[in-house]
Amino acid sequence: MKPAPFEYHAPTSLEEALGLMNQHADEAKLLAGGQSLVPAMNFRVVQPSMLIDLNRVQGLSHICADGNVLRIGAMARERQLEFDTLIETRTPLLHEAVPFIAHPQIRNRGTIGGSIVNADPAAELPMLMFALDARLKAQSVSGERWIDAQDFFAGMFTTALVPNEILVEIELPFMPPRTGWSFMEVAPRTGDYALMGVAALVTLDENGKCTRAKLVYLNAGDGPVDAKEAAQSLTGEQVNDARIQSAAAMASEKEISPFGNVHTSPEFQRHLAKVLTIRALKQATQRVGEMQ
């Protein structure tokens, strides 16, 4: 058999899952969609002595609107996100980006919470949480707390969760009016991990002046990389070609720190970041006003 032996628990309620996590926090791994954990277990890179399977826990797969935010259960499948009309209308950036996550077979099983908690710097969902100002709800036997996405990712494959906590819900504010969006990435083959990717958001006022911009990158450091200075250079200004060029140069040369891998050098990743940023900012700016 491929994976090493483990003890298996399949709780049916969140209370039961939290109790198990509290008791076995040091040895147990949570199993959500398993699309990153199970490959690692098949390689025996990861050998947890216990798995707590969340797939039978009720009430963790919702996607609903609540005032000005979307609430998404941590066990919502990526495929659910892809076809959800609330996500399409309220957070079109997420809607655009989800089809870039792996392949349909993976999205049918993989979950939003699992991908966020895995905190792979090359994955789409962690950086999208950054871009969309998500708040993440962590629960344990002793209560719940909300963590801003900006504070959640603590490095490569590392999060702010403490061992007995479970990520249960993601809160996404509706994208503000007059906001344009763009998600772009370059991968060697469709569905592969991208060499570089960017999420861009641009909000313009009635006079076409930028009131808020956001540029977040994947595979550009040890977590999602927020190019704050580049984004800041656009605010208060008309978003024209010259400003786009200079923001892209700033982000790709100064703010990201890609490592390179077997497919690419860091220099090529910086080149991709620059080209993608220019295209993404142009597209985002053109799309202002398209959101319903």
Binding site: A10, G34, Q35, Q105, N108, R109
Partner: peptide
């Protein structure tokens, strides 16, 4: 190893039989 799990295509090598 793609199979249908409750009608949806999934990788059977990334699911445990108990699931």
């Amino acid at each position: 190893c793609t199979i249908l799990f409750d009608g949806e295509s999934m990788r059977s090598c990334l699911i445990f039989a108990v699931q």
